[in-house]
Write a protein that binds this DNA or RNA. Structure first.
Lengths: 112, 112
DNA sequence: ATCATTGTGCGACTTCTTTCGAACGACAGG
DNA sequence: CCTGTCGTTCGAAAGAAGTCGCACAATGAT
């Protein structure tokens, strides 16, 4: 009946404080890191060990802050980084965050 | 007797999530913007209309997250950005945040 | 049609954040 | 020494955020 729809802020509505806040949460930053490495990803892959409601909470926050794009695919949920939108609005920001994260943390860590 | 001392994290202890969180607060981001424009600044200038305890709270948080350096000068308090430390640890991050902020917000706004 | 899976919304609980007043100590100046 | 200014600390209060169980709707598979 009603397919799942998601609201995404326009590119020019994306605000720096909200983006920084979204990325300041270790869990969400880890999700973003996976998205940057893998591209569009099944939402379950972003937090296999998390309760569903917790996962939804974080993906929603990332979406509403303009960091990720969400689309429904069957019963699943595909998440992708809004790389170009972020780059055009805040050039270099995402790259700096991810680079800084990479050199500080190791992807092979059990608990990043 | 006991001159005011402040603890600052080592450069290699500065963590991205804490920095992003510190910068995600509009008030603190505005303070950082002033620091970037003016260099070392009297703490009172960073929030002339704020209660002292509120100002201390934000400067402490910025200091503990590694964003600013604080030193006592007489009874006053001089704050400066740890530009080089941040640049060496997270290259381009601070610049990207400030540039993105500048193009999104106007310094002449009464309430940025 | 039935069933299992996925995501969402709701509500509750806990913890963290922010804000700010009041009291205190440190400092500079007269 | 006394006074006024500044910064810090403590505590309280309100608000925001994170976590998660549960019920429900939508979807795909059998």
């Amino acid at each position: 009946m009603s397919p799942r729809t998601y609201h995404h802020p326009d590119t020019d509505e994306i605000a720096i404080p909200r983006v920084l806040f979204a990325l300041s949460e270790p869990l969400r930053l880890a999700m973003v890191r996976v998205l940057a490495a893998q591209g569009e990803t099944d939402s379950l892959e972003l937090g296999p060990d998390l309760p569903r409601s917790t996962l939804t909470h974080h993906t929603s926050l990332l979406r509403e802050s303009g960091v990720v794009h969400v689309r429904a695919q069957g019963r699943k949920c595909l998440i992708s980084l809004r790389t170009e939108d972020l780059e055009s609005r805040f050039p270099g920001l995402l790259g700096a965050v991810l680079d800084g994260y990479e050199r500080t943390t190791d992807l092979t860590d059990p608990h990043p």
